[in-house]
Simulated scan of single mutants.
Amino acid sequence: MLDALKDISRETLRQLVDEIQSPEVVDYSPRDGGVCPVCSSKKCRITASGPWIGSARERFHKCRGCGLRFKSVETA
């Protein structure tokens, strides 16, 4: 999937990412982290982590592959 993104200009890719971004929540896995819902990249940086509330914790990510910002939820 990432090889196909190399043929798209950076500006076009940013526009697509901006159109796709949504408040979608993905599951957070301690093994895989937050996997990007757009390009399936596991190379997603955690930009912020919230406190544990009960048995859940929110984390915010930015994908290094496509630039998508998304939220994940980790459950204990």
Rank of each mutant, 00 (worst) to 15 (best):
R64T: 11
L5C: 03
F70Y: 15
K43W: 03
V38K: 14
W52D: 12
I46G: 06
C44T: 02
G65M: 01
Q21S: 13
R59E: 06
P51R: 13
S40N: 03
S9T: 15
S72P: 07
V38C: 15
T47C: 06
G67K: 08
A48I: 03
R57S: 12
L68R: 10
E11A: 05
P37K: 08
A4N: 13
S49W: 05
A76P: 01
C66H: 01
F60I: 11
V25I: 15
I46Y: 14
W52H: 09
T75Q: 05
V38T: 10
D32Q: 08
S29M: 01
S72R: 00
Q15A: 10
R64V: 08
R57K: 15
C66V: 09
V38N: 14
L13T: 07
S29H: 01
L13A: 05
E24D: 13
P51N: 09
I20K: 10
C44W: 01
M1H: 00
R45K: 15
R57N: 14
I53C: 11
V25F: 10
K6N: 06
G34T: 04
C63G: 05
F70P: 02
F60V: 11
A4E: 15
A4L: 13
L13C: 03
L2K: 00
W52A: 08
R31D: 15
I46E: 10
M1P: 00
S9P: 09
E74N: 09
V73N: 03
D32Y: 08
V26A: 04
E19D: 14
K62N: 07
S29T: 00
R69W: 06
K42F: 09
G65K: 01
S41E: 00
C63K: 03
G50V: 06
E19N: 15
S29N: 02
G34D: 00
A56L: 13
H61Q: 06
A76L: 04
G34R: 02
V35C: 07
C66W: 02
A76D: 12
I46H: 06
I46W: 08
S40E: 04
K6A: 04
K43F: 09
V38I: 15
S72C: 04
T75Y: 04
D3C: 01
S22Y: 06
V26F: 02
F70C: 10
V25E: 15
T12L: 09
K71Y: 01
S41R: 01
F60T: 07
F60Q: 08
D7A: 06
R64I: 10
T47V: 12
V35Q: 01
D7P: 05
P37A: 00
E74A: 15
L2G: 00
P30H: 08
